[in-house]
């Protein structure tokens, strides 16, 4: 299990990187390498050129833009884990990041890499979907923003072109005191989740839900917003019955299936985890004791 032969490039700027991307027909961008390197070692991918973007320095920022946190594409998962800004402004991401692999993989793994790989149960894309993130991609001579809703095109396939690279992710911030919860089910700690649920709630004084975001990972081909469930929450006051009923809508999602987890089980988990996430997020929003919905 050794990587196949390729030509290695380590550009120092995004311009150089995208120039190479446009030149080379069969190139792979190497970000944190936590997904690409195993695929290279197993020769599942056979690129002629590997463009290592780890030496590009100006892609590793986390910036507070007021209404959003802005992440450079090469921000490491470990940087997110230890970022005070992230825990303060996007607590959902902080809660999710601890489930991303292990410390040793978070050292290298990047936000942009995770978005580009787009595993349907990966935590960062799920959080990005929940927060309505905007992904900036650049190619030679052009840049564009892709709303998260339009970002996944299919199973592990983002909607940017082969000559484009993710440079930045802009993650809108929810109002202070919002409710959040990231709940996932994996066979072992640190594994890719079979299914996950990310919930954000804005709750008015008095307990009325004013805004809700519900995303499930690992059910569809990419993280999915459960709009039917979100709609059912608007204007309602949180309760165990309500959350149980709303979460049931997750069973209607068209689910994928493999030998490890049948479709019905993914749907079932989506309902269970969403029920739990809703209770947790709501409790946090109303500063109440945690509602325990097993």
């Amino acid at each position: 299990m050794k990587p196949p032969p390729f030509t290695y490039h380590d550009p120092r700027s995004v311009d150089d990187a995208v120039a190479l991307l446009s030149e080379k027909d069969n190139a792979k961008l190497l970000a944190g390498g936590q997904s690409l390197m195993p695929m290279l070692n197993m020769r599942f991918v056979l690129p002629d050129d590997v463009i290592d973007i780890n030496r590009i320095e100006d892609l590793s920022y986390i910036r507070d833009d007021g209404d959003a946190l802005v992440f450079g594409g090469m921000v490491r998962q470990r940087d997110i884990e230890f970022s005070g800004l992230v825990s303060q402004k996007i607590p959902l991401m902080k809660e999710a990041i601890l489930n991303v692999g292990h410390r040793q993989t978070r050292t290298r793994g990047t936000y942009g890499g995770s978005m580009s790989h787009l595993d349907p149960s990966a935590e960062l894309p799920t959080v990005s979907m929940a927060q309505d993130a905007i992904v900036s991609v650049r190619k030679k001579g052009g840049e564009r923003d892709i709303a998260m809703a339009d970002f996944p095109m299919g199973y592990m396939t983002p909607s940017f072109d082969l000559d484009e690279m993710v440079t930045e992710i802009r993650v809108p911030i929810w109002p202070e005191g919002h409710g959040y919860a990231f709940v996932e089910f994996a066979r072992r700690h640190g594994d890719y989740a079979i299914t996950s649920s990310a919930v954000l709630l804005d709750v008015a004084d008095g307990g009325k839900i004013t805004k809700a975001s519900i995303t499930v990972g690992g059910v569809g081909p990419s993280p999915l917003r459960v709009t039917a469930a979100e709609e059912g929450l608007a204007g309602e006051t949180g309760s165990a019955d309500l959350f149980t009923e709303i979460a049931e809508k997750c069973r209607e999602i068209d689910a994928m299936e493999d030998v490890y987890a049948p479709a019905w089980y993914r749907q079932h988990l989506a309902a269970v985890l969403t029920r739990r996430a809703l209770a947790k997020a709501y409790s946090r929003a109303v500063n109440g004791t945690e509602m325990n919905l097993r």
Partner: peptide
């Protein structure tokens, strides 16, 4: 050599990383 077992963990600039997943 696919980043799961952790036997190859080293400290890279003081931080643990899997050395089979780096060139």
């Amino acid at each position: 050599e696919h980043g799961v077992c952790g036997a190859c963990t080293i400290l890279l600039n003081g931080q643990t990383a899997r050395s089979c997943l780096m060139l």
